[in-house]
Simulated assay, not measured.
Amino acid sequence: MAMTLQATQREDLKRSSLRKLREEGKFPAVVYGSNKTASPIFVDEGEFLKTIKQSGRNGVLSLDLGGKKTSVMLGEYQQDSLKGTIIHADFLAINMSEEMEVAVRIDLVGEAAGVKEGGVLQQSLHEVTVSAKPNEIPSSVEYDVSNLQIGDTIIVADLNQDGSFTITQDEDEVIASVLAPRVESESEEEETASEEAAEETPAE
């Protein structure tokens, strides 16, 4: 069942009104999409953060606007880099029966065998694009890296697609690799040795 988020139509678009909203712990937003005219609204920041935490970044919300509920998903949102407060958010009105494309987080789980041997796991891709109906979008796509050895690489095609969604990203795109441990070159070793020798030589 979708989490409900209360919203209020924003009639007064003056800057002074916006300041008052922020002082009251609210922030401006807009809801659009699914043949719906973009509508300016405002929501309570505390309730917004609580709802998003429980539903997940790609969760379906029931936006209650004056008693009329609309199924939406959170689109883009802006956050104050210093205060951490929400500045503005976009809500996308959706059709629950239609598939849509969204970015989903990639979670690498376990410890790679190659890392235990001194290698370094380097993840270059953190999200993957999937197509699914709104209520079938996964919160994340997991990959167990436990069997990865030094030199191994995983690509998008390696991801498990169990579920009612389709990964639409380029299958050959690299997600992560286990890199060999860095070995000091002979020149670096010589340079280190000469520096140590210089430190041990007493000054005349």
Rank of each mutant, 00 (worst) to 15 (best):
V174E: 07
K26L: 06
A89V: 00
E186F: 10
Q79C: 15
K14Y: 10
M96V: 06
V120N: 12
L159P: 07
Q149L: 11
V43E: 11
E191H: 07
T51D: 09
V31D: 04
E24Y: 05
L82D: 06
A7H: 06
S194W: 11
Q122W: 08
L92C: 09
K53D: 15
E47H: 13
R15D: 15
S177L: 02
E189R: 12
A193W: 15
H88N: 10
V128M: 02
E189L: 11
A7P: 13
I94Q: 07
G46A: 14
A180K: 03
V174P: 04
L18Y: 06
I87R: 14
P134T: 08
V174N: 05
S140M: 03
E171W: 04
G67H: 03
R10L: 14
S17I: 03
S177F: 01
L179Y: 05
K133T: 12
S39I: 08
G151V: 10
V31E: 10
G66E: 01
M1R: 12
D107Y: 14
T201A: 08
K26T: 09
I86H: 02
I175N: 02
E189Q: 14
E188P: 01
T201W: 14
S39Q: 11
L63R: 06
T51F: 15
S97M: 15
I137L: 07
G59R: 07
N147L: 08
G84E: 01
K83D: 06
T4D: 12
S139I: 14
G75H: 10
A7T: 10
R22N: 00
A176G: 00
Y32L: 09
S62W: 00
S97Q: 07
D158K: 09
L82W: 09
Y143G: 00
D152E: 02
Q149R: 02
A198K: 12
F165V: 01
E76P: 05
T192N: 05
E76M: 09
V174L: 04
Q123T: 06
S140Q: 01
I86V: 14
L65Q: 03
A193S: 11
S140C: 08
S187T: 03
Q122M: 13
I167Q: 03
K68A: 11
A198L: 13
A198N: 08
E195Y: 06
E200F: 07
L63A: 06
S131A: 00
E186Q: 12
A29E: 00
D90V: 03
E136S: 15
S164Q: 13
L49D: 10
H88V: 01
V141F: 15
K36G: 06
E101M: 07
S71C: 00
A29Y: 00
S81H: 13
Y77E: 05
T168F: 06
F27K: 02
T51V: 14
P40R: 15
A29Q: 04
S16T: 12
I167C: 11
Q122N: 10
I150P: 09
G84Y: 05
E196L: 07
E171F: 03
E127C: 01
K83T: 14
